[in-house]
């Protein structure tokens, strides 16, 4: 049995994953809607979820600094080890960049972000139409890059689970000491 991630890391991993799986499709859907109360609501929900991702990602990085990941599973080829570390680092980077660009874009467009309608976040840049439009493009692009990274990441997890059957998934499983079925 290989070593597992610690429970806090596991909880944060799945909380962030869940939030991104909600925020991304909402973002795609809302952007093409005609202006309506529903659109304003979805924009708010999207922003609240996204800001939560940003904070949890920061907490995650802080926690990780004191709780390094378990060593790679035995018998994994070197290229997989290197690329998994690279993808994980990029995931952390984009988990932060995507919501930060969204936050900046909202400030630049003159729509402040008020977390859950309660906690106002400072506007980090002044209202500026051109900057707002530029950041909209940046936010969209980095969101797609994050999606691509997640697709690679999940594909690798699936490969480990169903092709290699090496139990890697258990390291990140929410079920403590999950029963191995393979």
């Amino acid at each position: 049995m290989t070593e597992r991630y610690n429970p806090v890391t596991i909880l944060l991993h799945w909380a962030v994953a869940l939030l991104i799986f909600a925020a991304f499709p909402i973002g795609l859907y809302m952007a093409d809607l005609e202006l309506s109360p529903t659109k304003l609501q979805l924009f708010s929900y999207h922003k609240w979820l996204g800001v939560t991702v940003c904070f949890l990602a920061a907490v995650r990085l802080g926690w990780r600094a004191g709780h390094p990941p378990p060593p790679p599973i035995a018998g994994m080829p070197r290229w997989q080890e290197v690329s998994s570390v690279a993808i994980h680092h990029l995931l952390y980077l984009f988990m932060l960049i995507v919501p930060i660009t969204g936050w900046l874009m909202s400030s630049a467009k003159g729509y402040q972000t008020v977390w859950f309608g309660i906690i106002p976040l400072p506007d980090l840049v002044h209202k500026n139409k051109e900057l707002g439009e530029l950041l909209e493009g940046v936010h969209e692009t980095v969101a797609y890059v994050l999606a691509l990274l997640i697709v690679i990441h999940v594909a690798a997890a699936i490969k480990h689970q169903f092709i290699d059957k090496d139990g890697l998934m258990l390291r990140m499983s929410l079920r403590p000491e999950g029963k191995t079925r393979s």
Partner: peptide, 8 residues
């Protein structure tokens, strides 16, 4: 005020 946010 839109969704609790002031918009000028």
């Amino acid at each position: 005020k839109q969704m609790g946010v002031s918009v000028d």
